[in-house]
Amino acid sequence: MRLAVFGATGPTGVEVVQQALAQGHDVTALVRDPDKMVGLVPNKELKIEKINFSSADTVEPHLQDKDVVLSCLGSKTWPWSVTLYTDSMEVIVTAMRKNNVKRLVCVTSWFTEDDPSNPPSFMMRWIVKPLFLGRIMYNMAQMEQYLQGCEDINFTAVRPPGLRMGPVTDMEFRTEEGPQVCDRDDVRGMCRADVARFMLSTMTSEDWVRKCVAVIAVPKK
Rank of each mutant, 00 (worst) to 15 (best):
residue 84 L to W: 06
residue 194 D to F: 03
residue 204 T to D: 15
residue 149 G to W: 02
residue 172 E to G: 00
residue 219 P to A: 04
residue 208 W to R: 03
residue 35 D to I: 03
residue 210 R to M: 14
residue 41 V to F: 14
residue 2 R to L: 05
residue 25 H to K: 00
residue 170 D to C: 01
residue 196 A to G: 09
residue 60 E to C: 01
residue 43 N to P: 07
residue 113 E to Q: 12
residue 83 T to W: 09
residue 51 I to R: 00
residue 87 D to A: 14
residue 138 Y to S: 13
residue 204 T to C: 08
residue 212 C to A: 13
residue 78 W to Y: 14
residue 114 D to N: 14
residue 80 W to N: 11
residue 27 V to K: 04
residue 169 T to R: 11
residue 158 V to W: 03
residue 201 S to G: 00
residue 15 E to M: 07
residue 132 F to K: 02
residue 126 W to F: 13
residue 72 C to A: 14
residue 67 D to L: 10
residue 43 N to T: 04
residue 138 Y to Q: 14
residue 18 Q to I: 03
residue 70 L to R: 01
residue 108 T to F: 02
residue 109 S to G: 13
residue 135 R to P: 07
residue 68 V to M: 06
residue 198 F to N: 01
residue 92 I to C: 12
residue 63 L to T: 03
residue 150 C to I: 13
residue 82 V to A: 06
residue 154 N to Y: 15
residue 41 V to H: 11
residue 96 M to R: 05
residue 18 Q to T: 14
residue 189 G to F: 08
residue 131 L to T: 00
residue 55 S to T: 06
residue 7 G to T: 08
residue 115 D to Q: 13
residue 53 F to T: 04
residue 213 V to G: 08
residue 97 R to W: 08
residue 129 K to G: 04
residue 103 R to D: 09
residue 32 R to D: 07
residue 195 V to S: 05
residue 186 D to N: 11
residue 207 D to E: 15
residue 115 D to P: 11
residue 7 G to S: 11
residue 154 N to P: 13
residue 217 A to G: 12
residue 65 D to A: 11
residue 58 T to H: 09
residue 104 L to D: 04
residue 95 A to H: 00
residue 2 R to F: 09
residue 105 V to T: 13
residue 28 T to K: 02
residue 114 D to H: 12
residue 170 D to A: 00
residue 200 L to D: 04
residue 104 L to R: 05
residue 178 G to V: 01
residue 73 L to P: 01
residue 49 E to R: 05
residue 128 V to H: 00
residue 142 Q to R: 13
residue 206 E to L: 07
residue 56 A to M: 04
residue 176 E to M: 12
